[in-house]
Design a binder for these strands. Structure first.
Length: 261
DNA sequence: ATGGTGGAAAATCCA
């Protein structure tokens, strides 16, 4: 069995202790982090190494973005792609010895106004996801797992209010269309929803709410997808809501899935 | 309709 986790950590240096706690308590084989906000050489790896996570593949930049794959199993660097030519560290891939490829993605948030004429960032987000679609269409993924903060909540029950969220970036119809097209182009299976098909499911709660837990205005922005050939091996998906209540938390919580591979 | 919080880095951008 193989367990993978994804977590937008919102500064890996500030939250080194939270990552270590999560690794100690859950012991996934692989943890994919987004928003490390650190150059690779400044990621604090000592404590993670001591916990058994001795294999690391990462891309970084100063202050923004940044993705890292921490693994207890040997992995090799499988490259990255500069989606939408932004020059950001938002994708890195790694390969396990069994041939499974892991894609760790951080899709742009897209700003506040859901109109590419008024807001350049929204256009960049759509372009990023459209390029994901094109890449997966040209080279159909096999034996692959894609995880990350995709910054889109596709389903009605992935947001606290479908009606009110339809005009809010992360749940607009055009973003959902783009994400589903990318998913479809690669024959990706949404593993979390395969395992937990019904009911409200969130992985992110805003810092701005007075009481995030009571208000519970969440969104499912963080995803685990599997290529069709291994999707039937996936099971035991979880979203760790309690991590949002830890001291100095990220606004995202870890999402996990296990695979019989 | 508005403003609310948090992180990095350097008094502003980004989420």
């Amino acid at each position: 069995m193989f367990t993978i986790a994804t977590w937008n950590i919102n500064s890996v240096r500030l939250r080194e202790g939270l990552v270590a706690r999560f690794l100690s308590e859950e012991a996934p084989d692989v943890l994919c982090l987004q928003e490390c906000k650190s150059p690779v050489e400044k990621i604090p790896l000592e404590q993670f190494r001591a916990l058994g996570y001795t294999h690391v593949v990462a891309r970084g930049q100063k202050g923004y973005n940044g993705v890292a794959i921490l693994s207890r199993l040997p992995i090799t660097d499988a490259g990255d792609r500069d989606y939408a030519s932004l020059g950001h560290a938002r994708h890195v891939a790694a390969r396990l010895e069994n041939g499974v490829t892991i894609h760790n993605m951080y899709v742009p948030a897209g700003g506040d106004i859901p109109d590419r004429e008024q807001n350049e960032k929204f256009g960049q987000k759509l372009d990023f996801v459209a390029e994901m679609r094109d890449v997966f269409h040209a080279d159909n993924p096999r034996k692959s797992i894609l995880v990350g903060d995709l910054n889109i909540a596709p389903r009605e029950d992935d947001v606290w209010s479908h009606k009110q969220m339809r005009k809010i970036v992360s749940h607009t119809p055009i973003e959902v269309d783009h994400l589903l097209a990318a998913q479809d182009a690669g024959n990706w299976v949404d593993v979390t929803r395969q395992d937990i098909p019904a009911g409200l499911l969130y992985s992110w709660w805003s810092y701005r709410a007075k009481d995030w837990d009571a208000a519970d205005k969440g969104r499912r922005l963080d995803h685990i997808w599997a290529s069709g050939d291994i999707a039937n091996a996936a099971h035991a998906s979880r979203i760790l809501r309690p991590c949002r209540g830890w001291d100095q938390p990220s606004d995202h919580v870890p999402v996990l899935a296990s695979f019989d591979l």
